[in-house]
Nucleic acid binder design. Structure first.
Length: 406
DNA sequence: AGGTATTCACATGAAACTATTCTCTGAGTTAGG
DNA sequence: TAACTCAGAGAATAGTTTCATGTGAATACCTGT
């Protein structure tokens, strides 16, 4: 009886064939509408296979334009071809959003070249130049060309790492390295040290956003592998593509949308994915995003958000001063120290940036200049916050009623 | 009526403080020779 | 004796406060008709 629980669930899976294909981490064998970029990148990296140093490259493009996918794809191809030709090639991929300090980047790269049973660089304890020395030594011992991909380079703290990596070639004798920097900030290099700029920006590539049609092709390609035959209504894919295209042609978003739609359909026990499911998926994704943000907000921001919600409920919309008063009351109730209005103003801007609240500056003439704050999602975040144990009990809290101007 | 000056209620900036996290050094500890 | 560990000094960083200056338009106050 118990063993049949899973049996039933496995058989219920009538929609997916291979869900992995739809995950953002998946690197497909074909990347539609990126042939030009792949060719260009390949021609830049090709010298590596002849044992020469390839130029360093900078890749720009908004999120979900295939930068990471193309880079990883090239890495795979390069390794294969290298093995085939008997040329020592190495490919290191580092996501700088996670590995964001100079020390950790160097440590990661160095450890890539060191076998597990050999002496690895520890998480902490070594001076940075010691790690650098170790890195040089370990790369040198490979005697080949190494391509280092730094994804989301703009997240890196300080440009010292980039400088150090760019001069790595001068310290290397037998081996060579080439750096591929990936960023979604077009203006990123403007803030860089000119030395780094010139040595890293030898080649530049820009990945344009996908159009709705192109997204359609990409989704279609993946859908073929991900789903069983004939479970997707034909307008579903174009709808997902169109929705994602509205938001700067983000392929990741489109894939998420498609995957979640199918998951919803599956969970509802239906055999086909139809438009309705996509609409529901759109909602769910937005909801999950907001939930996730709200959950991970620091305590003070949560209090500010809570104050905004309470104010929104009682006044309809509120300004900075009113919000601050409510916020102060909440802090007192919980015995948390109160931040200055200046700081709260900044927290409000942050929440606005995250898209949870809507805060725009309006001038009310004689009655000053302030922000008008509203809750921007129709979702019930309040419930989520009330359940937070760090929140004060607001069930019978009444915000101060002030004589509001009509 | 038309024009200028005030004024409100914060916005926005910069500098100064503070608390926390990172680095790095040197003393102490350990293991192998 | 060399390698390793770990505490704590000092540097870097993030989060806040303090102080200062800026802002847009409804109102108050003129001015001349």
């Amino acid at each position: 009886m118990m063993k049949d629980i899973f049996q039933g669930l496995i058989e219920a899976n009538t929609i997916f064939k291979n869900k992995e294909v739809l995950r953002p981490s998946y690197v497909p064998e074909v990347l539609p509408h990126r042939e030009r970029q792949i060719k260009e990148l390949a021609s830049i990296l090709a010298p590596a296979l002849r044992g020469e140093t390839p130029s360093n490259v900078f890749i720009y493009g908004k999120t979900g334009t295939g930068k990471t996918a193309v880079a990883k794809f090239m890495g795979k191809q390069l390794m294969e071809k290298g093995k085939q030709l008997g040329v020592e090639t190495n490919f290191v991929y580092i996501n700088c959003e996670i590995v964001d300090t100079q020390y950790r980047v160097l440590q990661n790269v160095a450890n890539h070249f060191i076998n597990i049973w050999e002496e690895r660089v520890p998480f902490t304890g070594w001076p940075t130049d010691e790690v650098y020395r170790k890195l040089v030594e370990s790369i040198e011992s490979t005697k080949g060309v190494a391509v280092i991909v730094l994804d989301e380079v703009d997240k890196l703290k300080g440009d010292e790492v980039l400088y150090n990596l760019s001069r790595l070639n001068y310290d290397l004798d037998k081996a060579r390295i080439s750096i591929i920097g990936i960023s979604n900030d077009l203006k990123f290099t403007e803030f860089l040290d000119p030395r780094v700029k010139s040595s890293l920006g030898q080649e530049n590539m820009v990945f344009p956003p996908y159009s709705a049609d192109e997204l359609c092709d990409i989704l279609g390609e993946r859908a073929k592998k991900a789903f069983r035959e004939d479970v997707i209504e034909n307008n579903v894919i174009s709808l997902c593509a169109a929705l994602a295209a509205q938001e700067h042609g983000d392929a990741r978003r489109a894939l998420d949308l498609l995957r979640v739609s199918a998951e919803i359909a599956e969970r509802m026990g239906e055999e086909r994915v139809v438009e309705k499911h996509v609409r529901m998926a759109e909602n769910k994704i937005e909801m999950d995003r907001v939930k996730e943000i709200v959950k991970t907000l620091p305590i003070q921001s949560k209090l500010v958000l809570m104050a905004a919600i309470i104010g929104d409920e009682t006044y309809g919309s509120l300004n900075t001063g009113e919000l601050f008063n409510i916020y102060r009351d909440l802090c007192r109730m919980k015995g948390i120290n109160i931040l200055t209005q200046r700081r709260v103003a900044d927290l409000i801007s942050e929440l606005d940036m995250l898209g949870i609240i809507n805060a725009r500056v309006v001038s009310k003439g004689r009655y000053g200049r302030t922000r008008e704050i509203e809750i921007s999602t129709p979702l019930k975040i309040k419930e989520l916050l009330t359940r937070d144990e760090a929140m004060p009990d607001v069930s019978n809290y009444k915000p101060p009623m002030q004589s509001k101007l009509l």
